[in-house]
Design a protein around this nucleic acid. Structure first.
Lengths: 353, 353
DNA sequence: CAAATCACTGAACACGTGTTCATTTGTTAA
DNA sequence: TTAACAAATGAACACGTGTTCAGTGATTTG
């Protein structure tokens, strides 16, 4: 406050001078490097407090060759699940004492540029929530000892860890629910050119329904919306009805498609759970609302974020450990569009034929 | 690729050596400082390309006393408007060549710590999308020549600029719409302990309805939900109906409250626009969906983001310019819950498709 | 032809920190 | 009392960049 140095920021040098010690000791105090007498430590802390000293993270990072930044690549935050995932990541990143460097990315080129910029900041790690990490960039990261973690996809990129919701578990939970409810003609709803996780969820569901004996692989109806989102789902429902399609149970690649499909069916006179069952992916706030009460698969974003950061730190310690692929368990949240089967008074048989 | 230096990153020194020039010239090329012969520039660029050289932003920032980072303070990303605002900010920040340092904040203490950390990274600016920037911290920022911009609030903190949607304009647009539709008993819906912008919107609406002669200040009914969000709005509707309340036109502090209130009213047998009109704030994707078709006030996030960054850069150039308070115009998006008054008797054209 | 201007380049310093290494001080063991 | 030792401290270097300042050679001006 009484500091009349013209806008210049105080450095460890200033603190050392005021406390009457060497700058090295100041550094030792603020980097917890130990071996400094309690008396001098207190002198330093008081001087620092008086001057309002704070460590310059740029200089610190330059010296340590690593900043306390974590790069996060996101896309399409308008999707409520994506933003809740980011929320969880931010929270965990801060809890661990890092700072999040967030970039939104639209195509592969932007992703490449982004990761490159991350390395220029000497980040402690890179989290890719969307899109496929380009292999060559990753090699560059590995060379710089920068761990890379991908979310909701997994693939064979050496030295890159992946954390992914357990899509097989989700598929089994849904298939079992459909069996309990007596559904017999099953459909999978996704949109054209879906994401990796969307496709994977469909494949898993196909497997699960076959394994459980719900329907043959060839029996599983694939409904493909022209686009993602609420409107995509709604239009898919209209097309489906116009073609005279019938289903018992529909599983959707994400929550917005599910809401849209449900509304589209309602416009055509069909509602859940009376006329069919529908289950979505991503337990977004909207699915819980009165007008939907959608049964959904819940992804545990907190746990996902935790695993991501533990992967990051593990590989930060030793860059050459084996690739880890974590599958995060999911939950089936039962609501109105596919209720507990005891309560079900479903008229599926009529519609099935 | 053939670079077998043990993980060490290439520096300008290496490039200089390979190109056969001094390190200063390399720096000149990469900082566009001019005055370097085309021939040597090309030699340097080629050498840099060969080695995969990239500027170390930490060293650069340390030297320039300013990083190309912009700190962004967010809160409650689960609110879809908040996340779309962040999306707009990210996009603009990247377009201008900066990088976003994003922190989520819950209370005033966290906000203080966050801004402090921002200064430690020597950010080029701080954007506060939620909460009130603490006055003393701001002084510290000013001392460091770090511009601070607040969004969707404005107040008398010297040297801090604010960018805010034009709440008065919104209020007038809504009041006029209610007049056109012949509404006479008007209500304002907000939740307890709302944000600054929520309160301000209510005050402006109170003024506007009085000025336009829609209703006296004392006539404007204030409905106060116990909590924010969909569920808050829905419960407010139930309470309202239980108490036998009647309204023509309801204006809501945000979109989620509006959706919840509408659904709550539907549960009680009232629907819009037959029984009453309802207009929300924040043109979130959900409000456009079939089951709502909510007439709302649209905030221009792109324009907001642009203004924020221009404020940032202006004050970055000259820290002592006058405080600017920008009001961003809003639009009234007319949908089904308060349709164009000529069509009111007919069942909306969106519906007819 | 001498002088002056110009474009270009390299050496050296500053930015603020972490860390190593030698030195000093205080303490314990022989 | 001396030797050995642990703890604490300061001087110096490295991190990688931007920038100033002086210097070189080439070109223009008088």
């Amino acid at each position: 406050m009484s500091d009349s140095r013209g806008g210049r920021s105080v450095s460890a040098e200033d603190v050392a001078k005021l406390a009457g010690v060497s700058r090295a000791s100041v550094s030792r105090v603020f980097s917890d490097q130990g071996n400094v007498a309690r008396e001098t430590r207190e002198k330093i802390l008081q001087a620092a407090n008086e001057l309002g000293y704070q460590v310059n993270f740029l200089a610190q990072g330059l010296n340590r060759k690593r900043s306390q930044l974590v790069g996060v690549v996101v896309a399409r935050l308008s999707d409520p699940f994506r933003s809740s995932l980011l929320e969880g990541l931010l929270s965990e990143i801060q809890r661990k004492g890092y700072q999040a460097l967030v970039t939104e990315v639209r195509d592969a080129d932007e992703l490449e540029m982004t990761i490159r910029r991350f390395t220029q900041f000497r980040v402690s790690g890179v989290v890719v929530t969307s899109g496929q990490p380009p292999v060559e960039l990753v090699k560059e990261c590995v060379q710089h000892n920068i761990p890379v973690v991908g979310i909701n996809r997994h693939m064979d990129i050496p030295d890159v860890d992946f954390v992914c919701s357990d899509n097989k578990m989700a598929a089994v939970l849904v298939a079992e629910q459909f069996v309990r409810c007596g559904c017999s003609s099953i459909a999978w709803l996704n949109y054209k050119d879906s994401t990796w996780s969307g496709i994977n969820r469909g494949e898993m569901f196909c497997q699960a329904t076959a394994e459980i004996g719900l329907c043959d692989e060839s029996d599983l109806l694939h409904i493909v919306a022209d686009m993602d989102g609420y409107e995509g789902g709604r239009q898919a429902a209209h097309v489906f009805c116009a073609e005279g399609g019938k289903v018992d149970g529909v599983f959707c690649a994400n929550a917005q498609l599910a809401c849209g499909f449900l509304d589209g069916m309602r416009e055509n006179g069909f509602d859940a759970p009376q006329d069919f069952h529908i289950i979505g992916f991503d337990n977004t706030p909207q699915t819980a609302q009165y007008s939907y009460r959608l049964t959904t698969i819940h992804q545990d974003v907190e746990e996902t974020a935790k695993r991501v950061l533990s992967c990051l730190e593990a590989r930060g310690q030793d860059p050459y450990i084996d690739q880890t692929i974590e599958e995060i368990p999911v939950k089936l949240v039962i609501r109105n569009t596919s209720p507990d089967f005891e309560l079900t008074s479903i008229r599926t048989k009529e519609h099935a034929r």
